[in-house]
């Protein structure tokens, strides 16, 4: 029995289990055909019924469950968000290799398990979630993926969201922080075009800096535009190819992880 929504677990691709998604034998999970039910208390009155419920309240409940579970396990979790092609997976592989262990990954894409396979080549466990037609991961999907990972205290969990700078901003997954990845080839005004995502993120990684000399881009302008939409955002310039900035990025992750452990120990 699935502990997230009560659906029966362990389904092989092609065999529905009535909850609208299948659970794969290889740890790949497919969504896109339906969603689980919601429980809301009865509030019937005469003709006008007060509801006062958030439209995303169901997602938020799943996300809160994921957050509680990760906190209890002592796992620091980041949600990586970006446009398609910003270099998320390559950067993630470089990050995991530099960490030398203690990483696990939930990979979100509409189709294919290519990215999870690339992650597994680094030695880190990875679960692929295919959203079907969905444009974002949600709290429910991540809850299922967590059941397929064997996490240990002190691990870092990376959730690589579907490449999309719009929808994933609104969907809490239970992470400790959203990490926006922006590559230098995308244009300095990207933060102004898609402000919501960069406002929701606690840190931005300005990726592919090795390409900057070939692209006539102004890296300082990227940074000032990021701070225009989010005055408190942390920014690190990185290159997965040359390793530039990886130490600072790992330092940011470790600081976040130890702050979480300190807060947890303090109760």
């Amino acid at each position: 029995m699935c502990t997230v929504c009560g659906c029966s677990d362990g389904e092989v691709e092609g065999h529905g289990n009535g909850d609208g998604h299948g659970h794969h034998a290889h740890g790949d999970i497919h969504f896109g055909q339906g969603l689980a039910g919601v429980a809301v208390g009865n509030m019937t009155q005469e003709r006008l019924i007060e509801i006062e419920t958030g439209i995303l309240s169901e997602n938020d409940r799943y996300a809160a469950g994921n957050r509680a579970k990760l906190t209890a396990m002592g796992v620091f979790c980041v949600n990586l968000v970006s446009s398609p092609g910003s270099g998320k997976t390559t950067l993630l592989c470089a990050t995991i290799r530099a960490m030398g262990g203690g990483a696990a990954v939930i990979e979100g894409d509409q189709q294919t398990s290519n990215d999870a396979e690339r992650i597994r080549e680094t030695g880190a466990p990875a679960v692929q979630v295919n959203t079907g037609k969905g444009c974002h991961l949600d709290g429910h999907m991540v809850g299922h993926a967590l059941d397929h990972l064997h996490l240990h205290s002190g691990d870092m969990l990376f959730i690589e969201n579907v490449g999309n700078l719009v929808c994933p901003a609104a969907f809490d997954l239970g992470e400790d922080a959203k990490v926006a990845i922006l590559s230098v080839t995308e244009g300095e005004d990207k933060p102004l075009k898609y402000p919501d995502m960069f406002t929701a993120a606690r840190i931005a990684l300005l990726n592919k800096t090795d390409l900057a000399p070939h692209c006539d881009v102004d890296l300082d302008l990227y940074e000032s535009n990021l701070r225009r939409v989010n005055p408190t955002i942390d920014i690190i310039r990185v290159s997965a190819r040359t390793g530039e900035g990886l130490d600072a990025w790992l330092g940011w992750l470790r600081a976040g992880s130890s702050a979480k452990h300190t807060a947890r120990a303090a109760g």
Partner: peptide, 22 residues
């Protein structure tokens, strides 16, 4: 953005509330 998902969320809540009583 994801207005279809939002509407599905609204429908779930509306179905729940409207499903009770008369």
């Amino acid at each position: 953005m994801h207005e279809m998902s939002l509407c599905e969320g609204i429908r779930r809540v509306v179905d729940q509330v409207a499903g009770s009583g008369d």
